[in-house]
Amino acid sequence: MTRDGTDRDGESAERPALVCARCGTLAEGRPPTWTCSVENGARRYFCDACSRENLRSIEGRLDSAWW
Rank of each mutant, 00 (worst) to 15 (best):
W66G: 00
I58Q: 02
W34M: 02
T25D: 03
N40Y: 10
R61G: 10
G60H: 05
E14H: 10
T25F: 07
L62N: 11
R22D: 12
T2P: 03
G24Y: 04
R22T: 06
T35A: 09
V19I: 15
T33M: 04
R52H: 08
A17G: 09
I58A: 03
F46A: 01
R61N: 08
C36V: 15
D4P: 01
T6M: 08
P32R: 04
T33C: 05
L26W: 07
P16Y: 09
E39R: 13
D9C: 06
E39Q: 15
E53Q: 15
C36I: 14
G60F: 01
R30P: 00
L62E: 10
A17P: 08
C50D: 02
P31I: 01
A13L: 12
R44P: 04
N54Q: 10
R61A: 08
D9S: 13
E14T: 09
S57H: 13
N40T: 13
S64P: 04
L18Q: 02
T35C: 08
A13M: 07
T25P: 00
L18R: 01
L62Q: 11
A49P: 02
R56D: 12
P32W: 06
R22P: 00
E11I: 04
W66C: 06
V38D: 13
R56S: 12
C20Y: 03
R56T: 12
D4Y: 03
A27G: 04
A21V: 08
S57I: 06
C36A: 15
R15V: 11
E39H: 14
P16H: 11
T2F: 15
Y45M: 03
G5D: 05
S51V: 05
S51A: 14
C50I: 01
L62V: 12
E11Q: 12
S37I: 15
G41K: 05
R56Q: 14
A42L: 15
W67N: 09
N40M: 14
A17M: 13
G10Q: 02
P32S: 12
S12M: 11
E14R: 08
G41I: 04
E14N: 07
W66P: 00
V19Q: 07
R15T: 09
M1A: 14
T25M: 05
C50T: 01
S51P: 02
A42H: 13
C47Q: 02
E11C: 06
D7E: 02
R43G: 10
R30N: 06
W34F: 04
C20W: 01
G10P: 01
C36Q: 15
S64A: 14
R30F: 06
R44Y: 14
W67K: 11
V38Q: 12
R52V: 01
S37P: 07
E59W: 11
T6E: 07
S12G: 09
S57Y: 07
A65E: 08
I58F: 05
C23Y: 09
D63S: 08
C50G: 01
D63H: 10
W34C: 01
C36K: 15
S57G: 15
P16C: 08
V38I: 13
E11K: 11
T6V: 10
P31S: 09
A21R: 06
A49H: 06
W67F: 14
P31G: 06
S57V: 09
N54P: 05
P32F: 05
L26R: 12
R30D: 03
R8C: 06
R52W: 07
I58Y: 01
T2Y: 14
R61T: 07
V19K: 00
G29N: 04
R3S: 14
G5S: 02
